[in-house]
Design a protein around this nucleic acid. Sequence first.
DNA 1: GGCCACACCGTAAACGTTTACAGGGCGGGG
DNA 2: CCCCGCCCTGTAAACGTTTACGGTGTGGCC
Lengths: 339, 339
Amino acid sequence: MADGPTINTIAERAGVSIASVSRVLNGLPTRQDTVRKVMAAADELGYVRNAVARSLKSRRTHQVAFAMADVGNPAYLAMLREIQPVLKAAGYRLVLHSTDAVVADEIDVLHSLGERYVDGLIMSPLRVTEAHLEMLAAARAPVVIIGSVPEGTRVDNVRADSRTGVKLAIDHLHELGRRRIGMINGPLDTVPGAARGAAYREALGDLGLPYDEDLVQIGDFYRAEGARAVGELLARVPDVDALMCANDLIALGALDVLRAAGRRVPDDVAVVGMDDTDLAAASWPSLTSVSLGSAERGKAAAELLLDRLQGGDREPRVVTVPPRLVIRASTRQEEGSPA
Amino acid sequence: MADGPTINTIAERAGVSIASVSRVLNGLPTRQDTVRKVMAAADELGYVRNAVARSLKSRRTHQVAFAMADVGNPAYLAMLREIQPVLKAAGYRLVLHSTDAVVADEIDVLHSLGERYVDGLIMSPLRVTEAHLEMLAAARAPVVIIGSVPEGTRVDNVRADSRTGVKLAIDHLHELGRRRIGMINGPLDTVPGAARGAAYREALGDLGLPYDEDLVQIGDFYRAEGARAVGELLARVPDVDALMCANDLIALGALDVLRAAGRRVPDDVAVVGMDDTDLAAASWPSLTSVSLGSAERGKAAAELLLDRLQGGDREPRVVTVPPRLVIRASTRQEEGSPA
DNA sequence: GGCCACACCGTAAACGTTTACAGGGCGGGG
DNA sequence: CCCCGCCCTGTAAACGTTTACGGTGTGGCC
């Protein structure tokens, strides 16, 4: 692992100047003879261009950062899965940050843009604070935010539409004849929690159904918490005939509890999840789920960023990805429930 | 987004030389007065050190690459989830490559180490070819391989032990009284496929059970393929009372088919998966699965790499992570099957 | 044969740091 | 009072590229 060859080494061996070497390596017009000599020397030495030195001179690193809240969350994973190939195809490497949704970590990432080790950043914060907005305004490289950002923030922005998403699910349940539709939500002080809770109420209103506080139970976005919440709801409102769950993990918890309580899904209680993660297809009965388009949002974000990296200045853009209801066994009555 | 401040800007404003600025920023002994002036100037200008220039000089990028076969695969994801925090704690950034298990892409990644944009690499190739070994020998930065590598290859190496893993599962099924244990495997020309197939045969032998070719069915490592394979096996050997599946996706397919065929799990047929992914816990009945320690392997790999980055030369090390059988409802008779 | 144009090439500066080296100022000791 | 030594600081080189600029050589044309 001795010091690798540089253009100086090549220049010496080929008997030309480093400028010529550089020109050949970059395909600039050069005499055929020189090209041959340089190429030969480079091959023999196993030369590889030093990316760091190139970046320093060109002020481009060909790296893009993606800051996700949680490496373990399948929704972010779906984004990553789309972002990666888009960047790769455009010749960018992907630097991955996991912020664990800690605000200080996210601010850190924004701050570190000043180090210029990446050309741009895609970030998906769980909540957007004042500090975020300040750092965004002062960011030293283009940023794309996945998630909603206050109106007027000058930043490219890709959003989901969980309001419409919840409405799709409630309408679906209503069409199936369900009238006592419960809602199992996550904490109301998170952006998704607040949005989904409000959307639930609104969707009921649109259908002329009454909003019944007893039908709403707050837990957290995990399976065990979801199960607990569903247990409480069932005890309080035994005649519930459908459950709108604020994400797939909660819905899995709901299935656990319903099974234990001897309620058939979907015959007795229909269940809808949210995010349409891999788990929705894996569970039994498979889970009807509202896709918020994680994959599409990832792709859109990557494309927005690339566009800005190549295009330069333009007005910030907002892309909204429409939700989609993926109907599976947990609401599809005719295909029955397990045994 | 005008050009950010450099140490030159600071030097001017503080009325000192760039060397002093650098010394202050690096905490080298300096007069208090100078420190104050420099710090003040740096603060006012919102200075952030340029990582690229630092790297060029110091020959260290504080970045490490992780090349995974497939961003979508939960087993790799589990590795990533462990690798990330270890690296972060040590002050390294993570550059993510997805090679889609294409050999050319993997070679590419190894080659690109010459660009010196990372200090080291963790790689998990699905199969190891001659080309891999050549590139590994010539690699310009430390590499850790997750997966098995031929004896004598001079490279840090973290391995799973799927042989023992399969044995654990077969022994478990045997203890439950199962004697007609089928095997649903992936392609035999992959490293895992070959290893697991051989281990199955061996484990049966250890128990004095006959090896019956009819009990083995080859498919692929996906749910639909697994389901198809199980269907064929069931048709051929109706008296099968347990299924050893070469990964969790295959096992999920098996559950689908068994349910459709009216076989109760585990009462009629017990099912074991492999990799212990999130899906195993999500399915119903939840899936007994052999954990090959993806998380532990990721962690071990990261630690090996860090050790080499800090320690320098030492003999290559091989770490083998022991498998663990995670028993869930798909084999745990007493807890019953769905309704 | 001389001059011009052009194609090619080499020298050197620049990107933003870190760091070896040497110089300046000051205090203390002889 | 002088000299030595030490602490601090500045100058400059280096990391490995890219690229502006000027120089050299060749060929063509008058």
